[in-house]
Design a protein around this nucleic acid. Structure first.
Lengths: 245, 245
DNA sequence: ACCATAGATTCCACTATGTGGAAGTGCAAC
DNA sequence: GTTGCACTTCCACATAGTGGAATCTATGGT
């Protein structure tokens, strides 16, 4: 197997086949829907037959699906089943859930729950306000550093994760990253774009998720402060019901 | 490799390692959170070292996570990233999204979007009403036949899928399955428990998702009819914006 | 404090199993 | 019809994954 140049140290006792399968899943997730075999093979550094076999195996498991017409590949429905099972058992979600409806109703905004996955923020729960325009960008996932929720989480994550986040965040990092990190990890709440976010901690001190609200375009500072207060209160109430790490 | 007895025909040109990795993911999804290696090995029919290597490889990719204390395994956060990417590109979700808020606001109920994954219904989008009690069972996934949305979809799926659904649905099938299937696949809408569901078709005739509403406990037939009408209207409006299968 | 047990992890020789080059097939465009 | 491109299948080779046995670690019992 040709190893990627500069890979630090191949972890011992690990299966190449699994690593390759996962690499393909990553490529399918990152690129656009329905990519073609040749492309995937090249980008993954695998030979075409190998990529084909791996994809075929993944298709059999519904983790990947293949368009019968173009025979191109994209992620398959099974990933959602796994995900829902994962999320259904995630303690933070259960802890936050009871607070979300009333939060939205009193604040009149859309509320999100986000977690950090590697160098991405994934919005894992949402509860929509009445007003909001017709465009709900549900199922969002972006570079951690491009949203307030992600920034709060990334800044509080381990050094290694933070570095990855900075590295994978394309552009917009004119400033000194470390200064931003310090600033963000101090802040009790953070605003970016139309989102205001706070962090949810578990019984230990470890941050486990971000709770955020969509703040309407022309909101004054006082309103932002009110929203932040409510979010923080819900976050710490939910956090108290959680165990350690 | 020891083959499971009675497996019809091992699909040719398929990787055993991937199949085994997927089997482990399935076991982790089905059973309860944090299962132990020995158990997983036995249930999967793999040797302990093999299961361990596979799990270790999956942990490296964050598809599985291992509790450092008990060293037990459960699904990892990466599955949510893949899932969100999948859902974010799913045409039906984009098509339905614009209608959901107004549907909820006029009907005053919680609205769900569900899809069929193998023999399970997975609720992939939701939009919560104001009233509903404190218990939002978000991230639901159950046997297809145990919810109205799942029944509508399963009844309209291929014969093979239908059989799987019947087989995997524990209990409650006192009646003749085929009669139920005929009944369910004829119905324009279906009620079960507190849920009323309709099917969303794409430009062809193929059913792609179910749209459902939570109907309040003491609702009369007229109200149910009103809800069904609104759901159907949204479903066909969204379906018209979709391409073929 | 000690041993006993159960479970996770590592080692190692064996060969089953995954690999990549090359040939085959199907489809679309010209 | 013919050319080109991309997906798929074939096959010999050796890489890379496998399982039994040994080792380590943690937990509970006496």
């Amino acid at each position: 197997m040709s190893d990627v140049r500069g890979e630090p140290t191949e972890v011992r006792g690990t299966l190449g086949t699994v690593r390759n399968a996962v690499r393909l899943l990553d490529l399918l997730a990152d690129g656009s829907a329905y990519q073609q075999l040749t492309d995937l093979a090249e980008r993954s550094g695998l030979s075409v037959p190998t990529a084909h076999r791996l994809l075929r195996s993944l298709v059999l498991a519904d983790l990947v699906e293949q368009d019968p017409r173009s025979s191109r590949y994209s992620l398959g429905p099974e990933v959602t089943r796994l995900s829902q099972r994962y999320l259904g058992r995630l303690p933070i979600l259960g802890a936050l859930s009871p607070y979300l409806v009333s939060l939205r109703d009193t604040l009149q905004t859309t509320i999100h729950v986000a977690v950090l996955v590697r160098e991405s923020v994934v919005y894992v729960d949402r509860i929509d306000a009445s007003d909001g325009g017709p465009y709900r960008d549900s199922h969002r996932v972006t570079d951690a550093l491009s949203t307030a929720a992600g920034r709060m989480l990334a800044a509080r994550a381990g050094d290694e994760v933070w570095k990855q986040c900075v590295a994978s965040h394309a552009g917009l990092v004119d400033e000194d990253p470390d200064r931003l990190r310090a600033e963000w990890s101090r802040a009790a709440h953070l605003t970016s774009g139309d989102e205001i976010a706070v962090v949810v901690h578990d019984a230990g001190e470890t941050p486990v998720a971000a709770l955020s609200a969509t703040v309407p375009p022309g909101a004054d500072a006082a309103r932002v402060e009110v929203i932040a207060t409510h979010l923080s209160r819900a976050a710490s109430a939910a956090g108290r019901t959680l165990g350690h790490g």
